[in-house]
Simulated assay, not measured.
Amino acid sequence: MDLFSLSWSALRAAVDGLPDGDFERQSGCAGWLVRDLVCHLVIDAQDVLITLATPAATEPTRNAVTYWEVVEPPTGADPLDALTVRLAAAYQDPGLLRFHLDDVGSAAGRPAALADPDARVGTRGQVLTVRDYLGAYVLEWTLHHLDLVAAVPDAAGPPPEALARSRAMLEQIAGFPLPAALSDTSALLVTTGRRPPTPEEQPHLAHLTPHLPLPLG
Rank of each mutant, 00 (worst) to 15 (best):
179 P>T: 04
8 W>T: 09
30 A>W: 04
96 L>T: 06
46 Q>E: 15
94 P>S: 11
86 R>N: 13
61 T>W: 04
210 P>M: 01
162 A>S: 14
27 S>L: 08
13 A>T: 10
32 W>E: 09
184 D>T: 03
73 P>N: 04
61 T>H: 09
97 L>V: 01
170 L>N: 10
215 P>Q: 08
103 D>L: 14
71 V>K: 13
26 Q>T: 14
207 H>C: 03
44 D>M: 10
73 P>E: 09
125 G>Y: 11
170 L>G: 08
85 V>S: 13
146 L>Q: 01
51 T>D: 06
58 T>S: 15
156 A>W: 03
195 R>P: 01
119 A>I: 01
177 P>D: 11
72 E>I: 00
13 A>Y: 00
25 R>Y: 01
1 M>R: 15
156 A>C: 07
74 P>K: 02
117 P>I: 06
172 Q>G: 06
176 F>C: 03
44 D>A: 14
209 T>Y: 07
118 D>Y: 04
130 V>D: 01
100 H>I: 07
148 L>W: 01
200 E>H: 11
134 L>P: 01
77 A>D: 15
114 L>N: 07
132 D>S: 02
94 P>V: 11
212 L>H: 07
173 I>A: 08
169 M>N: 04
106 S>I: 02
73 P>H: 06
14 A>T: 08
165 R>V: 06
26 Q>Y: 00
96 L>Y: 08
117 P>Q: 10
107 A>S: 13
135 G>T: 02
6 L>Q: 13
1 M>H: 13
9 S>F: 02
111 P>A: 08
121 V>S: 07
28 G>D: 05
90 A>E: 12
156 A>N: 08
102 D>K: 13
69 E>D: 11
210 P>H: 03
153 P>G: 04
78 D>A: 11
215 P>N: 07
114 L>A: 14
89 A>M: 04
176 F>W: 13
70 V>P: 01
62 R>Y: 03
184 D>Y: 02
100 H>Q: 13
66 T>S: 15
30 A>K: 09
135 G>P: 00
201 E>A: 03
32 W>P: 05
54 T>E: 11
67 Y>G: 00
216 L>G: 05
142 T>M: 07
86 R>G: 14
111 P>E: 06
186 S>E: 15
149 V>T: 15
73 P>G: 03
188 L>G: 03
94 P>M: 10
78 D>G: 02
22 D>R: 06
110 R>G: 00
